[in-house]
Write a protein that binds this DNA or RNA. Structure first.
Lengths: 225, 225
DNA sequence: ATTCGCTTCAAACGTATGTTTAAAACAGAC
DNA sequence: GTCTGTTTTAAACATACGTTTGAAGCGAAT
């Protein structure tokens, strides 16, 4: 809504539509008509639809990964030679996300949904792009998680990280419409801060759960191998 | 691979391709060529692509929801007037899923991924179909969860259920290719039982985490409202 | 042997998509 | 004012999609 530059108008419209409907389900004509821009403008300025998708991610992810690296730097420095705790690591990530300058009020939640879609919707080109462009901070986050949970076996940690990513990406990516399924329409708080406040303790607790092999309750047909 | 009936061959091929690539990204021509069936067969037997998607879900979900209702019946009966515990409820669901007769070795994991896609990929028609066809057992599961976590406020419970669904659906929906991002290529165990064994304790621990409003660590810029 | 209902088939239909083209419009420098 | 490089525009292009059509094939009952 701010600048009237074509490139930004396209990026804004694309970002919103992708988040609402997914990538394949959003056509260039929807984007250009929402952005009030000629259809050919996308191919002129970005080259292709896939390149536009990459640009949408890069616009957010490039400054974000810089912020994140800085946050990790500070965290590791302030911890001396001790590795940061799980809570510290999770909060470093969360705060970096929340503190990013937002283009509009729903900036972050839109982007969280995009990240979730990127992970779920198996667009080969997108995954390749994200991996080689932003793989470093991601690996670093994984390393921190590993150092913060030395009690976990590699396999346990692997799966629990998977669960964490799931809860996060999925929660952020679930549209308002889907939330109605839970029948909770009592004007529940939806600010990203508020969600993060609830999510991080949930993740930390799950990550540090005592027994990974809880014995199934009495009468269970599942046998523990 | 079993029967040579056209309808089943289409359902098998569709199930697998949908799980691999998503709904919009899978064309009828891919399905019919994988099923070695004429293109028009889909519209002849099912009416439309959307109806085929519904049929894929119904083939699994109808017997599953029957099994699940029975499991809930037994559970509630065995508990007398006490409400079933969180662990019992989660295991009842898990066991019902695992014990479903599988068409082939990867039957369940394929279907789990489909469920994840159904929730994530906001296909209006699918959500409407699932909601009105299988809304009852889902609501019942929600009611059990509520009774099993009386200590949680409605808002807390709402979000934590969201987190649980997320971890579950997302884990199930993440493709093998995506797992490589975690750099864990050491031939990790992937049977659904194995995953469930690890997931349920994670969920239970998160669901019962002590403080939903954990104070952000020292130096945090996030203020607790 | 013929008929009848169901199924398969190749071909086509109409539409929507991403992309390209070539001309027009525009802005700034000379 | 004219020229130059960039941007916008309307139109077309080629392709892929879901769906429809009408004829051919088939098996069982008559």
């Amino acid at each position: 809504m701010a600048q009237s530059d074509t490139v930004d108008r396209i990026l804004d419209a694309a970002e919103e539509l992708f988040a609402e409907r997914g990538f394949s389900e959003t056509s260039l004509r929807m984007i250009t008509s929402k952005a009030k821009v000629n259809l050919a403008a996308v191919n002129y300025h970005f080259g292709s639809k896939n390149a536009l998708i990459h640009a949408v991610f890069a616009r957010f992810l490039t400054p974000f990964s810089a912020t994140l690296e800085k946050a990790f730097d500070e965290l590791e420095e302030s911890c001396g030679d001790q590795p940061p705790t799980l809570n510290q690591t999770l909060w470093a990530l969360t705060e970096s996300a929340i503190r990013m300058p937002q283009r509009n009020e729903k900036g972050i939640s839109i982007f969280m949904r995009l990240l979730g879609l990127a992970y779920t919707q198996s667009q080969g080109h997108l995954r390749k792009f994200l991996e080689q462009e932003y793989g470093d901070p991601f690996s670093r986050f994984m390393r921190l998680l590993k150092a913060a949970t030395p009690q976990l076996s590699a396999v346990d940690r692997y799966w629990r990280i998977q669960f964490m990513l799931g809860a996060t990406a999925f929660t952020m990516s679930s549209s308002d419409a889907l939330r109605d399924i839970l029948q909770n329409k009592t004007g529940v708080e939806t600010s990203v801060q508020e969600i993060a406040m609830r999510l991080v303790p949930f993740l930390a607790a799950g990550m540090q759960a005592e027994d990974t092999m809880l014995v199934p309750p009495r009468g269970s047909k599942i046998s523990v191998a």
